[in-house]
Write a protein that binds this DNA or RNA. Sequence first.
DNA 1: AATGAATGAGCATTCATTCAT
DNA 2: TATGAATGAATGCTCATTCAT
Lengths: 215, 215, 215, 215
Amino acid sequence: MASQKSSSATLPPAPQTVQAPTAKEPKRKRGIARVAKLLDAGATVFAEQGYKAATMTEIAARAGAPIGSLYQFFPNKDVLADALVARYAEHVEAALDRIRAQVAEIDGIQLADRLLDVLVAHAAERSLALSLLDARWEQPGVRPGILRESLRRRIAEILCLWRPALADDQAQAMSVVLFQAMKSLVQLHEEKRYPGKAEAIAHWRGWVQRYLTEI
Amino acid sequence: MASQKSSSATLPPAPQTVQAPTAKEPKRKRGIARVAKLLDAGATVFAEQGYKAATMTEIAARAGAPIGSLYQFFPNKDVLADALVARYAEHVEAALDRIRAQVAEIDGIQLADRLLDVLVAHAAERSLALSLLDARWEQPGVRPGILRESLRRRIAEILCLWRPALADDQAQAMSVVLFQAMKSLVQLHEEKRYPGKAEAIAHWRGWVQRYLTEI
Amino acid sequence: MASQKSSSATLPPAPQTVQAPTAKEPKRKRGIARVAKLLDAGATVFAEQGYKAATMTEIAARAGAPIGSLYQFFPNKDVLADALVARYAEHVEAALDRIRAQVAEIDGIQLADRLLDVLVAHAAERSLALSLLDARWEQPGVRPGILRESLRRRIAEILCLWRPALADDQAQAMSVVLFQAMKSLVQLHEEKRYPGKAEAIAHWRGWVQRYLTEI
Amino acid sequence: MASQKSSSATLPPAPQTVQAPTAKEPKRKRGIARVAKLLDAGATVFAEQGYKAATMTEIAARAGAPIGSLYQFFPNKDVLADALVARYAEHVEAALDRIRAQVAEIDGIQLADRLLDVLVAHAAERSLALSLLDARWEQPGVRPGILRESLRRRIAEILCLWRPALADDQAQAMSVVLFQAMKSLVQLHEEKRYPGKAEAIAHWRGWVQRYLTEI
DNA sequence: AATGAATGAGCATTCATTCAT
DNA sequence: TATGAATGAATGCTCATTCAT
């Protein structure tokens, strides 16, 4: 989010006064590769077992790294989880920003489709981030509300850019509905398989397209 | 799925092959009261701390019961969690059954409202049940999908009863959409507070009402 | 210190509001014996290796108890250390109280000797307690100063009882000197062996005797 | 005991059989300054946290030196601690040597005062050295007893020089008492603050003065 | 039956020390 | 020679579950 020299961008620097523990940025090539491996291993294990059940030992092992290395970069379990959440946030924010950049050239149907696709495209990462977020009440780092709010605001921005005539509070309310619709579509996709799944998804897309087409 | 042979209904029997441990049915008044207290304590503590973080010892203490007593009725942590999920399922199923019983007398708007209210009315219990469910992959007991499917099927039944003319696969697809809409409304409610919250909820209700009114 | 029903008196009850962790009192015979063993093992290991270096695992092993048992009674390392310090405090306070009870019947030389003997008799326990105390800055429980002050005050009391004519501030100053003399004698005893050790000790005792005899 | 062949004297060479690791002597100006900084940082951190709790990483950081540099000069934690103890020993020995050099010109009261001042003047360093010494039983390096004995012997020497008529074993015994009196005065000073502190210290000085004046 | 003390595998985390760069 | 990232054994502590009383 905040711009940083060049790094994998997933690891925020920690200029905080009272040293809230933060992920350390790897300085050498080897470190960068290792951090990526650790992050991936963390994602896998957290996704498989949940935040509490996942063990740092297994995460390190999965990454083929010694436990000390894991702690070198992520001084505790929470920091690792936060880094994963941040990675998800960046991905989604980047996707929304890409839509915003092209907002002038697309119609309602396209906008609906592209918005709906954002969360669907990151479904797995999203589900992981959500579970990590609410497995850790009171923890420092990106709070669930903050994340949601930031995404919703981006959607509102896109709407305003897309239809400059739109009143501001109108855009607010629409962004809430749209965001919820995006989340719901993910859920519709996630459900294993059931009679009428395809139709349900089509209904949903159709509804959102109409929602945006009718202004 | 629906009703169980005879038990307090919250405690499923264990017809599994290798005798998966199950909740024991209390036999006397005192036992029944105690089980209720234990269940409530479990709900509270699981909700506060999450499945892994909650400790059996604290749950027993909160219920004012000795730990041995807790294990008397719920031979392990999973069984307790399953019982809580089952309790939620019963409540929602009962609510849907109540709607079905009156399906002849209500119009689309009423049906929409009553359906939407079902999950909202059990929002807290639902959120607990969901968190318990996905904190325990691979665990025995009611899997999330099974629960969802059972509810969805009930909705489809209601639709068929309500509009007998409705083709079966049409009802299937609609039930999926409706169920998703119900879940989404809960999420819309749960979100802390945000600009346009009330409007968003109204939009949503309105949309579902229209969905049912237009056949 | 505070009176308690009957227990080993080393384990203070914990009626604190914000649950500062405290030693749990054993309820059954087996538990009482085990706590005594744990305390002794703790004393041994702490004395041998110091507070930080001593490991809970070794303490438990030395007591022939599983680690879980150790934690049952002493919920953390600090509590165990505090219990040991408290045990020492009780012993010394009891010894001083015994002197006070007989203060009417003894002269200056006897008083000097009996006071000097108090710390010498508990030299090992004292050295352990001191090391435990200053290995743990900021920890809850009996602070070093508090302990010292409590002992010094007892000495002042004894002096006042012994020579009722003594002005209060005179007694205060004398108690400080006497307490220091008591501590010094312990150190004189503790030193391995050296030429003139016996004489040095005799000098010291003589000096204190004179100090008390000359009023 | 006294002076070492050539080195910065703080860093003892290692003539031991199985080459016990020893501090390396810095060769250039930069090295000397760095060693001093490391030593100071070590003193600070050991004093603040105790031997075990202090971390080599923090010591290096406090000295503004990389950890590798610390290990360059002090191949392990024990060597660093030993160097600090040795530094303390040198300071006190030097102070005693200064008294010895002037022994002809001073009377009993002055001698008493100057001796008493030696330890008081190095109270902080002394307390650090003692804590380092007994935090590491069985460790190689200067044992507490050796240090003590060396200082006591110096005191005895001073006494013999001061009053050549003094019998040797008389001087021995007196040196023990004096040394103990010196230590006790430090303790009297160290105690926070208490009623009668000033008087107690005055008593003590007076007593030692008398002890030396009465031959 | 009811109770709660006992058990010990398992977890997060630390840090002295090494060694590739 | 100087540096600091990497390493992994070791530590304090937890808690589901059992079983003696």
